[in-house]
Nucleic acid binder design. Structure first.
Length: 816
RNA sequence: GCCCGGAUGGUGAAAUUGGUAUACACUAGGGACUUAAAAUCCCUCGGGAGCAAUCCCAUGCGAGUUCGAGUCUCGCUCCGGGCACCA
């Protein structure tokens, strides 16, 4: 019989489903738990892509491996199903998002099954399902009650194409992450999470988790903590003062002007004192009209002096001018700076343009030509002269009554979206306009269905008669609903808490299941989620911990990323380039087992994979060979030379495959199995011309178990095929699934070859390779090595200075 | 500009603690089988010299440490990713 992936894969997928092989007892106490999580997909119309295929294959392999090692493994899957594409599709076609989503989820599940992913879809989580978003709303409610959310009107990133506010994290190069439209700043009322309350904890928590170093560093940089001082500058002849944040209070004596962000509230407050108000106002309006992109691309610094007002440098009493300029950002620090042109590049550039004095206060460079930003000794700083930068920071801050503090780049998370297909924010407004939480008994606060989706700049929910009536029926005349929905990142920030108990109607997860399963032991997903999803999920976890809903404060103990899947030329797959490869067509062409195995063989998990169809045949040939050598197996008890060799190699393979899976080095695990299969194959051809069967059946069985996580269908098929061919006594184990077998254990006694190759070097160069006993002593090795004629050529007539011996590996003779 | 990565055959890549560089696979070439093709199997495959044994050179470039460096240190070059007027 030939290896026909199509037949056996369909067959086993059906049987596994029927037997419920992926079901686990979530309350089992006898086995150690292991929670492995995939980043769940958004169920788009285009279906599962190759990136999903790779990371889900990796997790499926790891899951099957752990399970066979005896762990009780939770490996769930779900759908992050709220979001804009379904809504945009509705705008185009009129098909309701709830319908599109339902259909797409069915497709995704079919695709995952066809790849042999062993998820229990009865336990899935769907974020757009009321039984799920009830708890998203409940968590929002808890945050509301505990002061972790607030509403305010402020300048926010607005995408005019998506007709909604988006978060800072969703702005990429001044453009909307989703549609590429330039982002403008718009005054919009909206809801915020107080993620900035957790800045320090979000940094500190990273030292306790096993994540890739660069991911941690990137998160830390994104939070962007900088240590500095808050200083106050009095405005002359006024009660008002300007507060600034600076990382360089040591340079205070060199502050020769100040800059306010054009949006700074003092600008308006000082209107009556400013002589050139019309020019100032013009500049403010100009700034407002700039997009993020314009502001970033501005080559030259611009600004406007506030004529008629001056500030007083608290260090030396000097009067210094005040400017507004858009190089100072309203949203960072206090939105105002003290400018020290001698020691800051931006201030230097501005000072040159507006002819402002440059006062050197740190010795070291020629500040006429460029700002000197390095360390040095203080000068021109009164009694602080001669001090180091570090010491002066503290002392000068104290001297002027400032305060040492830290500032962060991280902003509060703006999560209001003026769109339809999202989780409704469970808030209603009293006739006086006060925001009130919808009481728990009305949850889920359902998304109304009587809306059309044409974007008009007005929130779609405002058009629902049903919602209007619902609010009035419950709360009374004059009450109105909140029309914003939540950013979909809110939905995905807690989904891992739901999987242990997805059908619970009383709680988001029972206390028992929470304490049994959380936190997640291993999380696999793309590195592109570093700044948003992974940060938000950690915040939600920490906030829930703070208000006592959970007893841990980091959700993901171990994190690994898969690399991108590129086309064969190494280019990103995209619709516009027309180089997108569909997993379905690959499964159709090569079979799921080959696709899975090749995906992991082609490159290390975290590296990019270039998907090259020409190469997948190598893996397919490998599986063919595994299939074929079954004919060579024999139920022998007696040991031949051939299968003793195989036995040693087999145990090396058990060791390597086990260690490699544990460490996500799937590519080398597979190549080791190829080496074993190649050896098993020649086990026959070595025999005396006849097709003698020499491959021990038990060795072959072990190979099948090692292979089963990678290529589950073929392994199961071959395993089960022994049921008919085997005599009654041994039959039973072949009747049950290969995945119920125990993972093989290395027997160290088989690992050691009797004889090993010893490399003989002279002055570090390889001159000879000799077979020696594996436990050869140094003296024996020396003797053997020096006798070798090839070695003698290089040692003859020379003085031997020393000999380095590495047992079982190498001997190096150093001659003069 | 700052912060991360990376560079090994024609190609994807191995080398786990400083100890045999190029495992495993793809492609290519040659051969066997076949009426033929496909499939399969076998052989060759970093560069150079040599009939051969063997020798020399080679892990982006240049130094260094070491008996020994793809691996460690210093200085460059190029490529990829992220952040970026953050005071």
């Amino acid at each position: 019989m030939k290896y026909e992936p199509k037949e056996i894969e369909k067959k086993w997928q059906g049987r596994w489903e029927k037997s419920g092989s992926f079901k686990i007892d979530k309350d089992n106490e006898s086995k150690e738990k292991f929670y492995i999580l995939d980043m769940f997909p958004y169920p788009s119309g285009t279906g599962l892509h190759m990136g999903h295929t790779e990371s889900y294959t990796a997790s499926d392999v790891y899951y099957r491996f752990k399970k066979m090692q005896g762990y009780n493994v939770l490996h769930p899957q779900g759908f992050d199903s709220f979001g804009l594409p379904a809504e945009n599709y509705a705008i185009k076609t009129g098909v309701k998002p709830v319908e599109t989503t339902k259909k797409n989820i069915i497709t995704y599940i079919e695709q995952m099954k066809s790849l042999g992913f062993d998820y229990d879809f009865d336990e899935k989580v769907i974020t757009s399902d009321p039984s799920y978003y009830k708890w998203t709303q409940w968590i929002f409610g808890k945050f509301f009650e505990n002061g972790l959310v607030y509403k305010k009107t402020q300048k926010t990133n607005w995408c005019s194409s998506c007709q909604t506010v988006i978060a800072n994290e969703q702005v990429v190069n001044g453009e909307c992450e989703r549609c590429g439209t330039e982002i403008i700043q718009k005054e919009v009322p909206g809801w915020f999470f107080k993620i900035t309350d957790f800045s320090d904890e979000l940094i500190a928590g990273l030292s306790n988790v096993d994540w890739p170093e660069y991911t941690k560093k990137n998160q830390i940089n994104w939070i962007g903590k900088s240590q500095g001082a808050l200083l106050k500058f009095q405005i002359k002849d006024s009660q008002k003062y300007i507060e600034v944040f600076t990382t360089r209070p040591d340079t205070l004596f060199g502050a020769t002007y100040m800059v306010l962000a054009p949006e700074h509230k003092l600008v308006g407050e000082l209107k009556d004192e400013i002589f050139n108000w019309s020019d100032v106002e013009k500049y403010v309006i100009q700034t407002q009209n700039k997009t993020e992109l314009d502001r970033m691309e501005a080559k030259e610094k611009t600004g406007e002096k506030l004529e008629g007002v001056v500030a007083i440098n608290p260090a030396n009493g000097q009067e210094i001018p005040i400017f507004i300029a858009d190089y100072v950002l309203a949203g960072y620090g206090t939105g105002a700076i003290m400018a020290v042109p001698a020691h800051d590049e931006r201030d230097f550039e501005f000072a040159k343009k507006y002819d402002i004095p440059i006062m050197e206060v740190i010795s070291g460079g020629n500040v006429e030509e460029k700002a000197y930003i390095e360390n040095g000794e203080l000068i021109n700083s009164g009694k602080f002269n001669g001090m180091s930068v570090e010491e002066a920071k503290q002392k000068i801050t104290e001297f002027v009554g400032g305060e040492m503090t830290a500032t962060y780049r991280l902003r509060d998370w703006s999560f209001s979206r003026q769109r339809y297909w999202g989780c409704p924010i469970p808030i209603v407004y009293s006739p006086e306009g006060e925001a009130k939480l919808v009481p728990e008994k009305y949850l889920p606060w359902t998304l109304p269905e009587d809306v059309d989706f044409v974007p008009t700049g007005v929130a779609p929910l405002s058009k629902s008669e049903e919602l209007k009536k619902r609010v009035e029926d419950i709360f009374g005349q004059g009450w109105t609903a909140e029309y914003d929905t939540m950013d979909t990142f809110v939905d995905s920030s807690w989904y891992f808490l739901r999987y242990p108990d997805p059908h619970n109607e009383e709680k988001f997860c029972s206390a028992e299941r929470l304490s049994k399963w959380m936190p997640v032991d291993l999380y696999i997903g793309g590195a592109e989620h570093t700044y948003m999803h992974l940060l938000y999920a950690r915040f939600i976890t920490k906030a829930m911990h703070k208000i006592g809903l959970i007893d841990f404060d980091e959700p993901f103990l171990k994190l690994r990323h898969q690399g991108m899947v590129l086309d064969k030329e190494g280019k990103k797959m995209s619709k516009s380039k027309g180089n997108v490869i569909n997993p379905d067509s690959m499964v159709e062409k090569f079979g799921a087992d080959s696709v899975r195995t090749y995906m992991l063989f082609a490159a290390p998990l975290e590296d990019e994979v270039m998907w090259n169809e020409d190469n997948i045949v190598g893996v397919r040939r490998f599986l063919d060979r595994v299939w074929k050598i079954k004919q060579q197996t024999i139920n022998n008890k007696q040991q031949t030379t051939e299968n003793l060799k195989i036995q040693t190699l087999l145990h090396k393979t058990i060791k390597k495959v086990s260690e490699d899976i544990e460490n996500f080095r799937f590519n080398t695990a597979i190549s080791q199995m190829m080496i074993l299969v190649n050896a098993m194959e020649t086990c026959r051809s070595r025999a005396t011309g006849e097709k003698e069967q020499l491959l021990s059946k038990s060795h072959y069985e072990t190979l099948l178990i090692l292979l089963s996580p990678f290529a589950p269908h073929i392994a199961e098929e071959l395993w089960s095929s022994f049921a008919e061919a085997t005599a009654d006594e041994g039959k039973n184990k072949y009747k049950e699934s290969i995945f119920l077998q125990a993972w093989p254990v290395v027997d160290e006694k088989y690992l050691q070859d009797e004889e090993v190759e010893m490399v003989v070097q002279v002055n570090g160069k390889v001159r000879e390779r000799l077979m020696v006993a594996h436990d050869v002593t140094e003296d024996e090795a020396k003797e053997t090595a020096l006798e070798s004629s090839k070695v003698k050529v290089f040692t003859e007539g020379k003085e031997i200075k020393k000999i380095i011996f590495v047992p079982g590996k190498l001997i190096n003779i150093v001659v003069s």
